[in-house]
């Protein structure tokens, strides 16, 4: 249990620093940046205290916001992602999640892809809705969301694959 706590604490800070110092400076094609810090939300233990989880996600987003001078954009996006996570878990893993036997290390690729894609898409959409904050620029929001989520999904899949401990 102690081990689990320390892993997630370290992951929290490492992801913030990585996001701020590395991923926010990529600016692929001028404006596309991946939001890799949501890996914390994606990989948070399934059995959790709901309120604590929501609060931690909010805090994670807020920390990134303070670094980026962006008000509450990341905080709201991370919060929304954390809130819809149980529904997404149920949708992508079905029975495995119902039986509380879900381990992120040994799930098949298709399910993982669906799970990460939905969460990332929700996060990026909220992020750009709040960032651009202008109803007349809906096309711009959707365009940014599409490109940024593709980038984020690829990076998230890569990182989770590289750092997963296969127990087979």
């Amino acid at each position: 249990m102690n081990n689990l706590l320390s892993i997630h604490t370290v992951r929290f800070f490492v992801l913030i620093l990585l996001q701020v110092l590395l991923f926010n400076k990529i600016n692929f094609l001028g404006y596309i940046n991946p939001h890799v810090y949501i890996l914390f939300i994606i990989l948070f233990p399934v059995k959790n205290n709901r309120i604590l989880f929501l609060f931690l996600s909010f805090l994670l987003g807020l920390c990134v916001d303070i670094f980026m001078d962006s008000g509450g954009i990341n905080a709201s996006a991370a919060l929304v992602t954390a809130f819809i996570r149980p529904a997404v878990l149920k949708f992508s893993f079905g029975a495995v999640y119902e039986h509380q036997a879900l381990k992120f290390n040994n799930i098949d690729f298709g399910q993982k892809l669906t799970y990460i894609s939905i969460l990332t898409f929700a996060h990026t959409l909220t992020y750009f809705l709040f960032e651009i904050f202008n109803v007349s620029k809906v096309i711009f929001v959707l365009q940014n969301t599409l490109f940024s989520s593709i980038f984020t999904i690829i990076l998230c899949i890569l990182i989770t694959s590289i750092f997963s401990k296969k127990s087979k």
Partner: peptide, 12 residues
Amino acid sequence: LLCVSVGLTIQS
């Protein structure tokens, strides 16, 4: 929490 973050966003 959403209200707080939306408030901060609007402020920014």
